[in-house]
């Protein structure tokens, strides 16, 4: 079973809670996919008022772990402040750390990310950093105290799927003991299965389900794909070959006639 900061989680799919047609459909999608962990954006869902009120109660009623995130933060200071607020509102040390470097591409600012991760880890946060697939950045994040890494596979919401399989493979190879969760860029269940087959520990997505024609059915499809990808990884997939290899022997074939 997957363990994240000492917490056993049964599902290897994590879902975001934004952009659904309605909270009722979101709740159904979460149930249909069997996820254990959902991410909640503090800024958007709970700013002011009664901390998200009904929306937050609905999420609580689903019995899932909440991974608050600092979505939309563009500076270290903003991200750290949001993380502290999130700890109070959601009563958890978990934080999905996003420090956005470019408003348009939503590419992570990896320098700010490392700095914020350092500050938050020192304050006892259990940081899930949203990062690129860069190896050195990953090392710095581990040095900063992160025990989980969440590399993108393509820009947020782009639905493009794994853009650099070599980088993802190399990240997996370098950090065999670190839980790696692909966060952002997944568009289809086949993308999720692909990264799971590489040995990634889990997949986090939102738009691909929330904006699907039928979010509930798509959530179920992703649940199955993640499961299938994981099973395939454990089963040891066959390596690709350049030559055809017959599945039945040719030499010594019985001769009829």
């Amino acid at each position: 079973m997957l363990e994240l900061y000492g917490q056993q989680v049964s599902s290897r799919l994590l879902l975001g809670t934004a952009l659904y047609p309605s909270p009722a459909i979101m709740a159904e999608a979460i149930k249909a996919s069997g996820v254990d962990i959902v991410t909640v954006s503090l800024r958007r869902e709970t700013s002011g008022g009664k901390a998200g009120g009904q929306f937050w109660s609905l999420i609580q009623s689903l019995g899932v772990h909440v991974l608050p995130n600092t979505a939309g933060c563009h500076s270290v200071k903003e991200a750290v402040t949001t993380a502290r607020m999130a700890r109070e509102v959601f009563a958890t040390n978990w934080i999905k750390l996003e420090v956005i470097g470019n408003h348009d591409t939503l590419q992570p600012d990896v320098f700010g990310l490392v700095e914020a991760a350092k500050i938050l880890s020192a304050e006892g946060f259990e940081v899930f950093p949203y990062t690129t697939d860069d190896l050195v950045v990953a090392e710095r994040l581990l040095d900063a105290g992160c025990k989980v890494l969440m590399p993108w596979c393509a820009p947020i919401g782009s639905a493009r799927g794994p853009q650099n399989l070599d980088a993802l493979r190399s990240l997996r190879g370098h950090f065999p003991g670190v839980p790696l969760i692909v966060d952002a860029g997944i568009g289809r269940p086949s993308h999720a299965a692909t990264v799971m087959e590489l040995g990634y520990d889990a997949v986090l997505l939102n738009t691909a389900v929330a904006k699907a024609g039928d979010p509930v059915a798509m959530a179920a499809a992703f649940g199955k794909a993640v499961e299938a990808g994981r099973q395939a990884f454990l089963a040891g997939p066959l390596e690709p070959r350049d030559m055809a290899v017959p599945s039945t022997p040719v030499i010594g074939m019985a001769a009829f006639s």
């Binding site: 869902e45 709970t46 002011g48 008022g49 009664k50 998200g52």
Partner: peptide, 13 residues
């Protein structure tokens, strides 16, 4: 569209 029931002033963002 913000999941929030506060009616305070519009934010700069």
């Amino acid at each position: 569209m913000i999941e929030c029931d506060a009616a305070g002033p519009i934010t700069a963002r």
